[in-house]
Design a protein around this nucleic acid. Structure first.
Lengths: 231, 231
DNA sequence: GCTTCCCAAATTGTATACAACATGTATTCA
DNA sequence: TGAATACATGTTGTATACAATTTGGGAAGC
């Protein structure tokens, strides 16, 4: 296994851990630990961390190492503002530009997502969902939109981790709806129907927004004031 | 002068050179040369180059060093597609969120731009113009839009270098119009008039588009077919 | 004369040693 | 007892040495 492979393995590992909140927002990353865990010297490890910072996965603090990018309320607000516009633009361009090979890749991604829904872990669901949207980004292929889209996908996945651990009937049905929307998105792209693709982007994102609202504003706990027992 | 300062100097130098096309698109960057020019070892130089890649200034090719990011026709097309949407969103958010201090910074940037128009070099004009728009980006302050906006600004500056070396009456008048639009943008932001700010974004960008069309499709050369003398 | 292959030189990528900085602890003095 | 400072420890940033890969030129073969 060459150093290049180990470097890519480190990259993939950290990406997956961040996306699935295996490494929660704000978690410190130790260069030395990563070095010997992946059998690399600190130099390439630091390069990987810089790359991940560029893509929005981690934050580097001067003389104080790397940490998983945080998700402050202010950042969530930014997310809600930017996501619909960017996503609609991405799907519109995807419908305009997708190649036959890319459409097959999208169908494959959707198949993997469905498989994860049936029998995968929460992490599998989050990662396969991200993969589906990444393919739409590749279809759009706009060098100026992709950096923003990538960052949206990262935090979309992290917020949605709750989504993929369905605790309520509503969430189970939301997951099924999301999968259906993926199918409709594929159809719109195959038909090169830009308007429909843009509409579906908004709809798909509205669904996620509902989930996120549950995440931010969960149902109040049962019980009277003064009760302090847990379970 | 500490190493940190020299590192920042290298960063600033390369950014300015790329923005003003002192280093043209595609130009190779030599790590070793930069190292002893700025009295740094190759390690921090490489880190700077990676940062610049993340921001869209340069491209790193596997085992073949860094080069100034190119400006292919395909990328220009991406630019024309994404710029109006992103820029309108940025100015809309700027009008919504700008603080008093930021408005002063924007006025200062505009003053510097005007000064450059009067008696600055083409590079000064390009850099002060970029600075003006960077301030609007800071005002918008949206973590998801800024990466895209930054890349647009880089290539906007590079395409516009021709713009800031006015060779024709049309271009001189365009420059004056651009400056006027900056003033109107400041006013819209000060009034927190989002709609007006978004309109001005489109108008300001349409002006630039005209310049770029001249850039891409200049007037045909005079002279008959078969002439081969130059000057 | 042209192509192909191989080697040398240069450049990029990695490892390690060293320097600078930050953090936590213990000791000392008020 | 409390606070402040000095020091020890660990972590980050930089320099340099080394390995691997690319590139250009020259010699050999067709």
């Amino acid at each position: 296994m060459s150093t290049k492979d180990r470097k890519q393995a480190l990259m993939a590992h950290l990406k997956a851990e961040v996306l699935t909140c295996g490494l929660p927002a704000g978690a410190d990353l130790d260069e030395a630990a990563l070095s010997n865990a992946f059998d690399l010297s600190r130099t390439p490890v630091r390069e990987v961390l810089r790359d991940l910072e560029a893509q929005g996965y981690v934050a580097l603090r001067e003389n104080r190492g790397a940490a998983v990018a945080d998700l402050s309320p202010a950042k969530l607000r930014d997310f809600f503002l930017a996501a619909p516009m960017i996503y609609a633009a991405i799907l519109r361009l995807a419908a305009r530009n997708a190649t036959a090979k890319q459409i097959i890749a999208l169908e494959d991604a959707q198949e993997a997502f469905r498989a994860a829904l049936r029998k995968g872990s929460a992490a599998d669901k989050a990662l396969t969902n991200v993969r589906f949207h990444e393919v739409t980004g590749e279809m759009a292929g706009n060098a100026y939109l992709l950096p923003s889209f990538g960052r949206l996908l990262i935090d979309h996945a992290r917020i949605g981790v709750t989504f993929y651990q369905p605790r309520s009937e509503t969430m189970v049905s939301n997951l099924a709806t999301a999968s259906d929307q993926h199918d409709q998105i594929i159809a719109a792209i195959r038909d090169a129907d830009e308007e429909r693709a843009a509409e579906l982007a908004i709809a798909h994102w509205d669904l996620s927004r509902g989930v996120m609202e549950i995440f931010v504003m969960p149902d109040g706990l049962q019980g009277s004031l003064g009760q302090t027992t847990s379970a």
